[in-house]
């Protein structure tokens, strides 16, 4: 069985959600993860905090980020087990992040543990 990383990309990470929306979003995310866990296919995951986020650029130029030029930001990821990319994509389709217009989930197979090494 292969492992895939599902990476959440937000079109605008600084958009402020209302308390009620955050509650709804939190519930959906927990339900989504619980659904994957129930099939013993959830490996792990984490959110990425916006506090003190920095971008280190060419020649070590450090900027506060990831805002400004780069609008799109990473919000978090989970790692799932799946037989193939199609199964991983099926998991990704249920991700509540996708409710937000312009948000995407990128699906990438992890190199280590791909069965060849």
């Amino acid at each position: 069985m292969k492992e895939f990383m599902l990476i959440f990309r937000h079109e605008d990470g600084k958009k402020v959600a209302s308390p009620e929306q955050i509650q709804q979003w939190m519930k959906e995310t927990m339900d989504w993860i619980a659904g994957i866990s129930a099939q013993h296919k959830f490996v792990g995951g984490n959110g990425l905090l916006f506090d003190d986020a920095k971008i280190v650029g060419h020649k070590g130029v450090v900027t506060n980020g990831p805002y400004g030029d780069i609008k799109e930001t990473l919000g978090g990821y989970i790692i799932v087990k799946a037989d193939d990319v199609n199964e991983a994509v099926a998991f990704a389709k249920g991700c509540p992040v996708l409710v937000g217009d312009g948000n995407t989930v990128e699906v990438r197979m992890l190199a280590k543990g791909d069965g060849l090494h």
Binding site: V16, A17, P19, I22, W25, M26, T29, M30, I33, G44, G45, N46, G47, L48, L49, F50, D51, G75, G76, I78
Partner: peptide, 18 residues
């Protein structure tokens, strides 16, 4: 501050549990 605190919860709780 209140909104940011909830955002932090949003980025932590689903993965570690409430």
């Amino acid at each position: 501050i209140a909104s940011d605190s909830f955002l932090k919860a949003m980025q932590t709780w689903p993965f570690e549990g409430i």
